[in-house]
């Protein structure tokens, strides 16, 4: 508590850095993963890439990727961009696959009905496919958010400022309170953002409030699957 009372401005700064990176990664992830998922619904080549990409990436430790992405992409090693790119890759791996699953399991009858009514393809995507896939998208997003917030801290070992600096700095200077503060703030931040997404998701999908159990179970299963997917990359 004493440490925190003297250092809270730094904690707030680092929290904001952390938050900003989280936002960038989340937005980029959705921006890349959802179109990829929709495209790989009909493109066999992309579908194969999705499987290989998601199956192998989750096994690769993030620390190794932090080292290798700069070599492959040409960004500086000790940069926020590097961290954002690497964690976006992990996020895309999770959301691409689970959203593809969601698109694949859209009820054919409903797509049929939309076509028969004369809904254009573009409109069908926006007003039918995406809303119907969004419960899965939201649970996958929550998985990504949780692991992203944890993984951002790893960037501290290459000097990228985030709440992870509280771990490296606390360790090097032997300040246990600093490390504990870091853990608490990271967990709290994760919990807060998770609630935010969950509440926003529920508000945006009123039709889910009394949804039949089957589809809710499906969403939960996807979450369990992607959970299995991200655990391996959680360091």
């Amino acid at each position: 508590m004493k440490w925190l009372s003297q250092n809270w401005p730094m904690v707030i700064d680092l929290t904001l850095d952390h938050l900003w990176m989280t936002v960038q990664i989340t937005v980029l992830t959705v921006l890349f993963a959802v179109p990829l998922a929709r495209l790989s619904m009909t493109n066999r080549w992309l579908r194969a890439v999705a499987v290989v990409f998601t199956n192998s990436l989750y096994a690769v430790p993030s620390l190794a990727l932090f080292m290798m992405v700069p070599v492959l992409v040409g960004v500086p090693l000790r940069s926020t961009t590097n961290v954002v790119i690497v964690l976006t890759l992990y996020g895309v791996a999770v959301i691409w696959r689970s959203t593809l699953d969601a698109f694949d399991t859209l009820p054919p009858r409903i797509l049929d009905a939309s076509d028969a009514m004369g809904v254009t393809r573009w409109r069908r995507f926006w007003s039918v496919e995406l809303p119907l896939a969004s419960p899965v998208l939201v649970s996958a997003l929550r998985v990504v958010l949780a692991s992203t917030i944890s993984l951002i801290t790893v960037g501290a070992v290459i000097g990228v400022p985030s709440l992870g600096l509280l771990f490296t700095d606390g360790f090097q200077r032997g300040i246990t309170a600093e490390v504990i503060t870091g853990i608490v703030v990271v967990v709290a931040l994760g919990w807060l953002l998770d609630r935010l997404v969950a509440v926003a998701g529920a508000a945006a999908m009123p039709w889910r409030a009394t949804t039949p159990r089957r589809s809710r179970r499906l969403a939960r299963r996807v979450q369990a699957q992607s959970l299995r997917g991200t655990d391996g990359s959680a360091a």
Partner: peptide, 20 residues
């Protein structure tokens, strides 16, 4: 528990354990 554990930062746990 499994869900909450996902939120635990691995680096934080490692440094905390090392200090302790």
């Amino acid at each position: 528990i499994a869900g909450a554990a996902r939120a635990l930062p691995t680096l934080g746990l490692l440094t905390l354990a090392a200090l302790a």
